[in-house]
Design a protein around this nucleic acid. Structure first.
Length: 401
DNA sequence: GAGCCGTGGGC
DNA sequence: TGCCCAAGGCT
């Protein structure tokens, strides 16, 4: 009985350590959905710089780099960063040897900065533990920093051609629509995995995964899906019911709280700006910023002068800088001042020449703050990293102070 | 499991 | 304008 019980447990319990792939033992023909999807892919796949071509086989470093960048990030946003990283760091070895700050600087503006920290740490582990060759098995990949279930499965299938269940937001949307999965996310993940396991082919699994994502990005979109053009129309239960757009089911979102704070833009007469570096972890970890207050739900007493060991005359920018993070919305009041060139930076801060601002790892919110402050100070600068669409960014020199 | 973690584009 | 979302991972 012990043996039978043990077998029963083993067969009913899903493999915890190996979720994404379950190599099938029998050689079944591909599911009709896979056949149609691969044909769609052959005819309509998007040309993306990290994808393999006829004369360029899949490169695990390229696949890994692109997958990390694409986490919660649009293809359009990733493209220029991907090209820049390949120029700066052509190989995983080059990336591993790079200065961490250089990596953060190159990532600035892309968001979710723990990805950049993990990217660098991962490159170093691949070099140290695997001689610069990415492992081609799930456990090895999953143990690397920044690689979770999705990314491990994506690398396995796209870079190494191994069968894996690649489940991202696109796949969740496509599958819940195909089968009209009524369970709400994230509880539906098990059902989605089971359905995907049925249709995932043994061959061309990397192409299959990418075809699912292409379908989700181009036709099976979150809003207004183009069901009439879909290669899976005949297979799709929600298309038949004409309610594809209502999938996947999700719990209503919580409201986004607002936080308030103040920041100072201090320009020294030699043309340099007072800056500091944020703590290594947490929000905007390891990134550069101008001095600023705590961000609190209620307005807090704030005296800009308290941040400086010398006197200055302050001017408050008319409009606060507004920036929306994932889980809160921030309003920053900006105070600006000019000070004589003889002053040194307070402890933990530094002065950075305006010309060297492009070499700082400035997150977008701080780019906005700097832009607004410089405009108020009457300094005209071409935004170094990118125009953050601050309306003030294009305003001409205000009446000089 | 739920909260934390950025940013920009589209409607 | 405000809200939704995008090839998620970590704690």
């Amino acid at each position: 009985m012990g043996k039978a019980l043990c077998l029963a447990v083993m067969t009913t319990k899903p493999q915890r350590s190996l979720p994404p792939s379950a190599p099938k033992t029998t050689a079944l023909p591909p599911h009709p959905i896979a056949v149609r999807l691969l044909a769609f892919y052959d005819a309509h796949q998007r040309a993306l710089p990290w994808r393999a071509t006829d004369d360029r086989p899949a490169n695990p470093y390229h696949v890994w780099l692109s997958e990390i960048m694409l986490q919660q990030t649009t293809v359009a946003a990733v493209k220029p960063y991907y090209e820049k990283f390949l120029l700066l760091f052509p190989t995983v070895g080059a990336l591993a040897q790079a200065d961490p700050q250089e990596v953060m600087r190159a990532w600035a503006g892309l968001g979710y900065y723990s990805r950049a920290r993990n990217l660098h740490a991962c490159a170093q582990q691949v070099v140290r533990a695997y001689q610069g060759q990415f492992p081609d098995h799930y456990e090895g990949l999953k143990a690397l920093p920044g690689i979770g279930d999705y990314t491990a499965a994506a690398i396995l299938s796209i870079a190494f051609g191994k069968r894996a269940l690649v489940i991202d937001g696109n796949v969740e949307r496509v599958v819940t629509r195909l089968y009209r999965v009524e369970t709400e996310l994230p509880r539906a993940k098990g059902e989605i995995r089971a359905h995907l396991d049925v249709i995932t082919p043994e061959k061309r699994c990397g192409d299959f995964a990418q075809s699912m994502m292409d379908l989700g990005a181009t036709l099976c979109t979150p809003r207004k899906p183009a069901c009439s053009l879909c290669p899976l129309h005949q297979d799709c239960l929600s298309a038949h019911q004409a309610d594809a757009e209502t999938f996947p089911r999700k719990a209503p979102k919580k409201e986004r709280p607002r936080r308030l704070g103040q920041a100072i833009v201090v320009l020294r007469d030699d043309g340099s700006l007072l800056m500091r570096t944020r703590p290594p972890k947490g929000l905007l970890g390891g990134m550069s910023e101008v001095p600023n207050s705590d961000w609190t739900p209620e307005p807090a007493a704030f005296v800009a002068q308290d941040l400086l060991p010398f006197k200055a005359t302050w001017q408050r920018c008319p409009d606060p800088v507004r920036h929306v993070f994932t889980h809160f919305e921030l309003h920053l009041e900006i105070y600006v001042a000019k000070i004589p060139a003889r002053h040194k930076a307070p402890d933990g801060m530094r002065f950075v020449a305006l010309e060297a601002l492009a070499e700082e790892a400035l997150p977008s919110v701080m780019q906005k703050v700097v832009n607004a402050g410089l405009v108020a100070l009457g300094v005209r600068v071409q935004t170094p990293i990118k125009d953050t669409k601050t309306k003030s960014a294009s305003i001409k020199k205000s009446a000089g102070q």
